[in-house]
């Protein structure tokens, strides 16, 4: 079994460009999953459509900013109605702070935010891109 130490600074080869994760269908709706991109832990959310809108996808850091535990994918998703639109959110499973899934900003208090990652679906495959020049996992 391979190990990823969440508290170690990434020393692995930098991971560049779009990385294939899994078939888009393997991600359940409205319940996050975690993925490993290089040694960065990413939480991926696939949200059911709002009204007539499309399905929405998000990728953010899997690390809970407040405690450093790798758990964000296990948080509850939801929305906050803030005119003009609804903000998609995830709440930390540990202390329940909510984060804006698009920007990563913490909506409860002034705590640190979540890092957000780019994500796309190409030929039914889900892909994630880390910021260029490799990436250090924040803990």
């Amino acid at each position: 079994m391979t190990a990823v130490d969440p508290n170690a600074i990434d020393t692995a080869e930098p991971v560049e460009g779009w990385i294939r994760i899994c078939p888009a269908d393997a991600v359940p709706v409205d319940r996050g999953v975690a993925a490993l991109v290089g040694s960065t832990m990413v939480a991926i959310f696939r949200l059911s459509p709002l009204g007539d809108g499309p399905e929405e996808w998000f990728a953010v850091s899997h690390i809970d900013p407040r405690t450093g535990a790798p758990v964000m994918a296990r948080g509850l998703i939801g929305s906050v109605e803030r005119a003009p639109e609804a903000i998609a959110t995830v709440a930390s499973p540990l202390h329940k702070e909510r984060y804006d899934l698009r920007t990563g900003v913490c909506l409860d208090g002034q705590g640190a935010g979540l890092e957000v990652f780019e994500l796309r679906i190409i030929a039914q495959e889900l892909e994630v891109k880390l910021p260029s020049g490799g990436h250090r996992q924040e803990t």
């Binding site: 079994m1 391979t2 190990a3 130490d5 969440p6 994760i21 991600v27 490993l36 991926i44 790798p70």
Partner: peptide
């Protein structure tokens, strides 16, 4: 399963 794309890999708590 902890990581959807790496079922045999897991994080290691300290």
């Amino acid at each position: 399963v902890e990581f959807v794309n790496a079922p045999d890999t897991n994080s290691v708590p300290v």
